[in-house]
Nucleic acid binder design. Structure first.
Lengths: 246, 246
DNA sequence: CTGGTAATGTGGTCATTACCAGTAGTGTAG
DNA sequence: CTACACTACTGGTAATGACCACATTACCAG
């Protein structure tokens, strides 16, 4: 990894600068709460304009690696804040981050008439009558973690097969590669519930055990609601984390 | 509300522009998924530079009101994404957003030896031995919603009295006004638990009922951990919502 | 010793100019 | 008719230069 900016590189300069600065922070070259070089110093150090410096630093701020104090300087965040949380992730990515091997057991994959609740969440127009329903038991290191039910409003003509799912594992990877659909945002609500007999059986817990119910609406880069997904998590095996900012 | 930029105004121009554009969107002048004027058009329309336009639009994007597609244009987000979620809020603000009147019953306010768990979360240095412990039953429209336990690491010399709390209601408002402490970020974890007899009594639910346990670490604008707070929410009266982005 | 002030360094805002990189429509050569 | 180049838009990146707002320090007058 180079530590200078290469103007001919395919990557934008501000992005190269982000990479360089992040590396220095993660290597401990600049300690938490220590000041990093000022914007005008970075200008000279890396032969870029202040515009570029500010764009790079702005990104680092949004990622939680540094913070700025007006009139004082730019400082390295404490380690706990350097870890990127929040990120919109798939179940698979989520498990991998937690150091567990993601797995799944597909219970159903079918085109069904859209329930009213789903119609509303996905803002379906009246001419769209059906959605794809996908029900899976999700596992981490082979142990059941959650019961996931997805309702997908795929673009016309798009299909989804059991084989694709079993091969790639991640639904979002398929959407991205085959249909060029990128996820941009999600709204999620969490609440507490208790296991019905069927849920208890699938999750391998006693009926009546407390569960964490997550309901999520997923939006594409064009801000179309594409998926409504419920996940029932085992209360004893799952913990949800977020970072809030102001 | 003016619809032009006033250079002599105390507020920065990009901020004035944000206000104008947001007003038009919320008034329905530009419908969801419709294109708003291009950056170069906004330049002319409001007599500001493209720098300023982009700074304003960037803010609107982060607030979820609009989205951009490279080579195409800038578009208004669907209504569901326009509503600002996520925001780091106090319990009081949270209740008000939900349309409930926040209230509290203080159970304890005392300086105590910091438990080990708290020491770690707040990253206390060895010379700091005590923190302030504040335990409250929080209510919405008079009904118990949550049992909140805060551990505060106030700056040297700062104090906190029952009277202040009862008067202002919001702890964060006191920190802001009296000690110029602003909250910048929070890390939160959520999990499921069941009510102990004491918790059940205070929350007015049967013992063994499922509860939502939130643990939160709060960071100031200088990225010092100032508070560790647990809230046990009644599972039947509380639902947590977040917006995730990529 | 105290309180004001000027100097200097920090991030924050803004205008101007230029060119790159995608998108979409149009026209033309094959 | 199709394939391809052209063109005219969009947002994305970048340099330069200027001034404002805030924080800190040093210095000086009282």
């Amino acid at each position: 990894m180079s530590s200078t900016i290469n103007p001919n590189d395919m990557l934008p300069r501000y992005f190269q600068l982000v990479t360089i600065l992040r590396a220095k922070i993660e290597a401990g070259e600049w300690q938490p709460h220590a000041a990093i070089p000022s914007e005008r110093q970075l200008e000279v150090l890396y032969s870029v304009s202040r515009t570029t410096v500010r764009q790079a630093v702005g990104l680092l701020i949004r990622q939680g690696l540094v913070y700025q104090l007006h009139g004082k300087g730019t400082y390295v965040s404490p380690r706990k804040l350097q870890k990127g949380l929040v990120e919109l992730t798939s179940f698979s990515e989520d498990m991998l981050q937690r150091g567990l091997q993601p797995g799944q057991r597909i219970l159903e994959l079918a085109e069904v008439e859209a329930p009213e609740q789903v119609r509303q969440h996905l803002e379906l127009s009246p001419d769209i009558r059906t959605v794809i329903r996908l029900e899976r038991v999700r596992t981490g290191d082979g142990q059941p973690i959650g019961l996931q039910t997805s309702y997908l409003n795929l673009p016309a003509g798009a299909t989804l097969t059991r084989e694709q799912l079993e091969e790639r594992g991640s639904l979002y990877a398929i959407l991205q590669e085959k249909y060029n659909i990128n996820l941009a945002a999600a709204d999620e609500t969490l609440e507490v519930t208790v296991a019905t007999p069927r849920e208890a059986l699938l999750l391998e817990v006693p009926a009546g055990n407390p569960l964490l119910l997550s309901e999520r609406i997923l939006w594409t880069n064009e801000r179309r609601a594409i998926e409504f997904v419920k996940i029932l998590y085992r209360g004893d095996r799952y913990r949800y984390t977020v970072r809030l900012t102001r």
